[in-house]
Write a protein that binds this DNA or RNA. Sequence first.
DNA 1: GACATTATCATTGTCGACAATAACTATGTC
DNA 2: GACATAGTTATTGTCGACAATGATAATGTC
Lengths: 228, 228
Amino acid sequence: MQIEKEVLRDKIGDVLRGWILDGKLKPGERIVELTLARELNVSRAPFREALWGLARQGLVEIRAHHGAHVTQLSEQDIREIFEIRELLEIHAAKKIRATADAGAKAALRQALAELEDACRRRDIKLFSAADLRFHKTLWELAGNRHLQHILNDVSTRFFGYELIRDLPHSGKFRFDVMAEEHRRMVKLILEGSDRGIEAGFRKIFAGFLDYVLVRFAETPPPARRAAE
Amino acid sequence: MQIEKEVLRDKIGDVLRGWILDGKLKPGERIVELTLARELNVSRAPFREALWGLARQGLVEIRAHHGAHVTQLSEQDIREIFEIRELLEIHAAKKIRATADAGAKAALRQALAELEDACRRRDIKLFSAADLRFHKTLWELAGNRHLQHILNDVSTRFFGYELIRDLPHSGKFRFDVMAEEHRRMVKLILEGSDRGIEAGFRKIFAGFLDYVLVRFAETPPPARRAAE
DNA sequence: GACATTATCATTGTCGACAATAACTATGTC
DNA sequence: GACATAGTTATTGTCGACAATGATAATGTC
């Protein structure tokens, strides 16, 4: 594996983030510095700093003398993070509703169109990318960079989870429902009221949380070696 | 300056955090690793990791080849962070209202009592500590550890600011107003409704934000060497 | 055989040195 | 004198080595 970009720690961080998000490194798994550092042909110094960068995003947890572990979320964690994301994303939606200009509306419609297209093609990879782009657009258009940043971090933590990452692969993934829900969100923002956004988004989020939690209950914890 | 605790990086982090929060290190100021590391009789390795820990809290910003700078907030930043804190703290208050048991209510009243006492004595140091404790209690009682954590980080960023830290020293600090406002918050949580909390907290936050922004406008930016 | 104790090993924490980069200074040119 | 250029210095980035710690295995005792 070769790297070529800014500073080493950033390149390493990008690689590790990728490994976590696509499941090569699994939740709860310990990251042994020397092992992975050697695999990347780098020394431990920049590797360590890369880990701190990931810890900043909540993707890994660093404990003194116990190394870095890929963050492992409990059901409680998922509920809590979900609650926050819902709160913040609804807030973002309301702000967009109140402030959106022509450009913002166009961006939103554009993101929606891409997502709908991915759903029509029933293409998982395309959908995941479009979904991420859609929500990132939402966060950005709210016009609060700190909010955008927090939402990004809070959301990123989920993607490392196969139970979420692999959701679409479960065969019975409802592309049409997803398209409809996102259409509804856009409609609420462009034509609805704050109360409408509140109720509509809540409903969509609740449905998704249920879906996630059911899968979480089904999935046996992958040998949680975490709590020591 | 001597240190003795867990791992070096944590001890260093604690010292640096203290220096930032009490103004020995000012917003925008560059942190030169060797200089401060020598002052603490430590090498750059643990010092650097301490910086990453602070970056995780948003207290410093690390840019490749440009070192670490104590986070410098623009007026825009203050507005944005304030908006988020208001949103989250109102959410916390609503959750407490809905779920608080006898113990929670007692904890809230206790925190309020200490704050009122500090106000009666017109003791700034006491007040600052009590205020922090009051809000931390609020965040904790909401029963969402992730929310608690985010609120803590989001709030910490303010304390490094003299314009906020030194507010109470401006002579005309209104202890009675502060006591009254916190009393009102507790009353709203214990006896009010969600709508009441929303409106009441909004009003209090708005007043405080105004106060902060006026002072921010008055304070000349301390030779912003940031934007390079 | 089960348990406590010690020794061994794997891994992280810290260090000092050197390389790479950016900021600064001095010099030359017009 | 102002500007561009080259050289110098200050600071960060990366490295390999050693120390400290925690986990594991081996040993001894009951």
